[in-house]
Nucleic acid binder design. Structure first.
Lengths: 336, 336
DNA sequence: TTGAAAGCGCTACCAA
DNA sequence: TTGGTAGCGCTTTCAA
């Protein structure tokens, strides 16, 4: 059986209060007693129950991270960064993957709260901000990452999606493309919408039009979705010469579709992705993509969250990081 | 403030015991009272505290998953599979990434236990089985995934690493290679050792020797490590014509090294990986690799774990799934 | 059927 | 400095 605070107290011949104080380094205990108690804890291999402690409202030094799909390298890399920084600051991270299903968002939100994390980082889009209400009530600090979240209550860390889309657009325009299509995630994803808006903005600046029919929203499976949409696009009589994909996974689907149809990238079709995950650097050809500073975002999110923990009253500005275009081999001048 | 069981009891004019019974669907409560209580719970937006419940030893319907590095697509895909199956069976999954550091293994092991998960799936190699002792004491069910774990206490799901290595070896031999080197993870990783053993076995069967100096263990960063080791190998006078990499990430590092040196794959250097993650299918050239049935492994691990939950006394055999060689474009006959 | 009360392990306040 | 003790919110006998 696991040792409890009572066992330690009994063995050491002191009260549980004394033991509790030693555990938490609070109160006044004589050096002698403290050492005695420590050695008993050691001997009994005693581990305080976080559960019981949490019940009495103590900090748990655990942060929750909610992502839509952990098998998307972008979020896996975010998770990695968050874990790293959290650990540096003495926090453990528990990760929950909502598997892109709305119902699970609510479930994991509740779960994390119930497991009494000290704060949460949310990387999942939330259509229904109502879901945050219980957290706000309990004043659980929240920062959203990689997604805008229009709530005064949550702090936000994300890349300039509009600017990112614009970068992609300008790059493609500079290469002489005018017939360009867009592969998106589900259009309820705000970052996708923003990226497209930025992209459109760039095209518009050059007097180039993006027909609505050429904005293809994907389904749940980004890879398959990207592939399917691209096949459709490429089979049209008047097909696009370039593709802007709202993330790397979609871009890879597009790459696969092109390969399947024998369409050469970048000679016959230019493709630009978004995120700059590990995937982008290894594909054939390597992917031109809009990079998000994943590591910096993860670190910043943790820093902000822990900042809120220690100073809850602070203002909560949005932090918008700068996207960068990384040119690799999947884009080329038209007619090259 | 959040409503407690007391609030509900008071509002409904019953005892907390009655409310508890309703929550858990136990005991005998008149239909009438039950409905009354339900409606009060609704009105108060009452959510039972999992923490408090856990303190009294109730199930939490949460499973813990421990992986060495969530940014490795193999483990991200495992996590995805586990989450999916867990969810199907009504369990939530919390994922912890140990970031490949031993100290964090212990920390997260303790954490998960403290958060009172009902069981744990461990995908991290554990040198020190002592760490499991506290879990065994509390009889927390454990299944290890993707790693052998020589403990009668834990159930195991993994691929036949020896056979997988052998498949790789046979494939390379069949292509006429004899000068073959191996890229491994840290050699304390048992699966790497097994894969190499199987690989050696295949070579030995053909009278081919694998010099120890050509077994290159990597460091923490698999990608960089794989690249560095490959550069070293390729710069030797008498360099290998083929590489067996103990996972896809290493193989990609090798691919990058080859590209950097202008060594053509597969014409001048054949590379075979292990895992068959998404990465393998997108690289340039696509990677020949030994596939693990990731989805099946995740599903099986969850099933076994939940089996133990409901029937703790069962025998705990190891489940060894079959690896499959997936031939893509990174391997070719020697001299082609 | 229902309710009173004893924990679960720990924190924090108040007396001693 | 110390120890006693009242919760924290819920589950679970055991009586009523």
């Amino acid at each position: 059986m696991k040792a409890t605070i009572y066992d330690v107290a009994r063995e050491a011949g002191v009260s549980i209060a004394a033991v509790s104080q030693v555990i938490n380094g609070k109160g006044k205990i004589s050096e002698e007693r403290r050492n005695e108690i420590f050695s008993v804890m050691e001997r009994l291999n005693y581990r305080p129950s976080v559960i019981a402690a949490a019940l009495t409202g103590k900090r748990t030094y655990t942060l929750g991270l909610l992502v839509p799909d952990i098998s998307n390298p972008f979020f896996a890399e975010i998770a990695h960064a968050v874990e790293d920084q959290g650990h540096k600051l003495g926090y453990s991270i528990v990760i929950c993957s909502t598997h892109n299903e709305d119902e699970r968002i609510e479930r994991y939100l509740t779960l994390l709260q119930q497991k009494s994390v000290d704060g949460m980082i949310i990387g999942t889009g939330m259509d229904n901000l109502e879901l945050l209400a219980p957290l706000v009530d309990k004043s659980v600090p929240i920062v959203s990452i990689a997604r805008e979240m229009p709530s005064a209550y949550v702090q936000t860390v994300h890349v300039g999606d509009f600017d990112g889309g614009k970068l992609a657009g300008q790059h493609l325009l500079a290469l002489g493309h005018t017939r360009i299509a867009v592969l998106a995630e589900h259009l309820k994803v705000s970052s996708s919408r923003e990226r497209i808006r930025g992209f459109r903005d760039a095209l518009a600046g050059a007097g180039c039009e993006l027909p609505d029919a050429w904005v293809k929203p994907g389904g749940f499976d980004l890879l398959q979705g990207g592939k399917r949409q691209t096949l459709e696009l490429l089979r049209q009589a008047e097909c696009p010469t370039a593709l802007f994909c709202c993330n790397d996974l979609l871009a890879i689907g597009a790459l696969q579709a092109a390969k399947e149809l024998g369409v050469r990238v970048p000679e016959e079709l230019s493709i630009v992705g978004f995120d700059d995950t590990i995937l982008a650097s290894v594909t054939d050809p390597p992917l031109t993509t809009v990079a998000q500073p994943i590591e910096a975002m993860g670190k910043l999110a943790v820093d902000l969250l822990i900042g809120q923990l220690t100073n809850p009253s602070e203002a909560k500005p949005a932090h918008v990081l700068e996207p960068k275009l990384v040119v690799r081999k999947s884009t080329a001048s038209i007619g090259d």
